[in-house]
Amino acid sequence: MVASLAEWVSMGEHGVYVWSAWGITALFMLGLTLHARLERRQLLKHLKRVARRQASPPQQRGHDDDPKA
């Protein structure tokens, strides 16, 4: 257990090492989580747009919306 907040943050001279290692880990895990959410939201939006366009008269259907992109 730790005595004070400042002491805890400094990690007994090892603060830089501990916090940078944990920080990078947290950054990557949060980044991956947010990316997965954003990816899903944008994909749904995109697919709906394509579906709407295909439902309307097919006069000028572009190929720009390749779902792989």
Binding site: M1, V2, W8, M11, G12, E13, H14, G15, Y17, V18, A21, W22, T25
Partner: peptide, 25 residues
């Protein structure tokens, strides 16, 4: 696990607090 590892787990007798990196490494 993070709170436990960063706050409550004891430091190592040789490495001190840098041991806490083990919990992500």
């Amino acid at each position: 696990g993070s709170v436990w590892g960063l706050v409550f787990a004891p430091a190592d007798y040789q490495q001190g607090n840098s041991f806490r990196i083990i919990y992500v490494h």
